[in-house]
Amino acid sequence: MGKRNVHVLQKGEGWTVAREGSPYLGAYYRSFDAALDMGACLAARERVELFVHAAEGTEGATAPPRDRAM
């Protein structure tokens, strides 16, 4: 099986990290920073790309400032 990219997704009031093609979402994070850190860690470990989705269903939109907790 090929390597699957990692996605950081906004979910309700928080954020989640998911692997591409997986029907399951990862852990739920209240802050963007926590989700981004976990996504970056997973992507680096798996040597895949990290995609950040700012709102449900959108890719590449501006993410909230890193110092602002959701």
Rank of each mutant, 00 (worst) to 15 (best):
E59V: 14
E56I: 02
V17F: 09
E59T: 05
G26H: 10
A54R: 15
M70A: 13
F51D: 02
T62S: 12
F32W: 14
Y29N: 09
L25D: 10
R45A: 08
G39F: 05
Y24V: 06
P65T: 04
G39T: 14
E59G: 09
E59W: 09
R47A: 13
C41I: 07
D37P: 00
A18P: 00
N5S: 12
A44R: 15
G26V: 02
A54P: 04
E13N: 09
V52P: 01
V8Y: 05
A69D: 11
E59N: 03
G26E: 01
T62F: 10
S22A: 11
R66K: 14
V48P: 00
V6E: 07
D67M: 04
S22H: 07
R30W: 12
A18S: 12
A55T: 14
A18K: 15
G21L: 01
A18G: 03
E20D: 13
Y24P: 00
A54K: 13
R19Q: 06
V17P: 03
A34L: 11
F51K: 06
L25E: 09
A40R: 15
A27I: 02
E59Y: 08
E56Q: 14
L9G: 05
K11L: 07
Q10E: 03
L50D: 03
L42G: 00
E49N: 13
G21K: 11
R47M: 03
A54S: 15
G14C: 03
A69K: 15
E20W: 02
E59F: 07
T58W: 13
A18H: 12
G14W: 01
A69G: 08
A27N: 03
C41Y: 13
G14V: 02
V52I: 12
E13F: 04
H7A: 05
G26S: 08
Y28M: 03
L9W: 01
D33Q: 15
W15F: 11
A55H: 15
L50S: 11
R66L: 11
A63W: 08
D37C: 10
E59C: 05
D33H: 11
S31E: 04
H7S: 09
V17T: 11
G21M: 02
L36V: 15
Y28D: 05
L36M: 07
T62N: 04
L36H: 14
P64G: 08
R19Y: 05
S31Q: 05
L9I: 12
R19T: 05
A63Y: 14
G60H: 10
Q10M: 07
L25Y: 09
M1L: 02
G57Q: 05
L9P: 02
A69V: 12
T58I: 10
D37T: 15
G26D: 04
G21S: 02
A40V: 00
A55K: 15
V6K: 08
T62I: 09
R30K: 15
E46C: 01
T58G: 04
T58A: 08
A27F: 03
R4I: 00
E56A: 09
E49I: 00
R66G: 02
V52F: 07
D33K: 15
M1N: 05
Y24W: 09
G57P: 01
F32R: 13
E13V: 06
L9D: 05
A34E: 15
R30E: 09
K11S: 02
K11P: 00
M38C: 11
G57K: 09
V52H: 09
E56N: 06
V6C: 06
H53N: 07
A63M: 03
T16M: 08
P23Q: 11
H7L: 13
A61D: 11
M70N: 13
A27T: 08
G21D: 06
